[in-house]
């Protein structure tokens, strides 16, 4: 059902990047300022396409919205220590990739409470650390690491080139009839004739 939401009973269909659709209550969706600005007053004709995000991410985001429907109105960022047990479990069960996807989706949907908690969680990773420790926490390759990485890649490329050259050389050698033993020579000639026959018959 996709009509203008006046009661929390109204359900909306959400479409994910995979093309799958699922229901979300109007009350949960109204926590998204993006949704409020786009669809609240005019309603949606069919599923609402949030196709930049996958189903798992959107379900996770709206799981949070459904849970916080009955909580008091959002009044600014909360300290991580004030989070409920449910909130902590919600964040703890996410891996890093899912966490980043949830932040991005929450940012797009403009869900203030969830975005704020996510940011506080990231800030917590940096809290009480010196610069060196911060560098370890966030992905920041140093100049030496970049140089070392480049060297490794160059070495790998050189090795791959060598292997390719060797393979080409070997192939060339096997094609040279003089170097093949008699049985192999017969087999190779047979293969060549078969290939020729097949190409004729195709024509």
């Amino acid at each position: 059902m996709t009509s203008p939401a006046s009661s929390s009973e109204v359900k909306y269909l959400i479409e994910s990047s995979e093309g799958n659709t699922f229901d979300v209550s109007g009350a949960a969706l109204r926590q998204s300022n993006t949704f409020n600005a786009m669809f609240l007053n005019i309603g949606a004709d069919g599923p609402i396409p949030f196709t930049d995000y996958n189903e798992a991410t959107l379900k996770k985001v709206f799981e949070y919205c459904e849970h916080s429907v009955n909580e008091e109105n959002y009044s600014g960022p909360k300290h991580q220590d004030d989070l409920s047990k449910w909130d902590l479990n919600f964040f703890n069960e996410m891996d890093q990739k899912m966490f980043i996807d949830v932040i991005n989706a929450s940012n797009f949907l403009d869900i203030e409470r969830l975005t704020s908690y996510c940011c506080e969680r990231i800030a917590r990773m940096l809290r009480g650390k010196n610069t060196q420790e911060m560098i370890k926490v966030i992905t920041l390759p140093t100049a030496e690491e970049l140089e070392a990485k480049q060297k490794v890649e160059e070495k790998k490329a050189a090795a791959a080139k060598k292997v390719a050259e060797k393979a080409a050389e070997t192939a060339e050698k096997t094609e040279t009839l003089e170097e093949l033993p008699v049985q192999q020579l017969v087999q190779t000639t047979r293969n060549k004739l078969t290939r020729k026959y097949l190409s004729f018959s195709n024509e």
């Binding site: 890093q96 932040i103 991005n104 940011c119 990231i122 966030i138």
Partner: peptide, 17 residues
């Protein structure tokens, strides 16, 4: 989340927060 966090991959608004 034990692996290093890609902070700079976050959107600017989120980074600001």
């Amino acid at each position: 989340m034990s692996s290093p966090f890609p902070l700079l991959r976050l959107p600017g608004v989120v980074l600001c927060e």
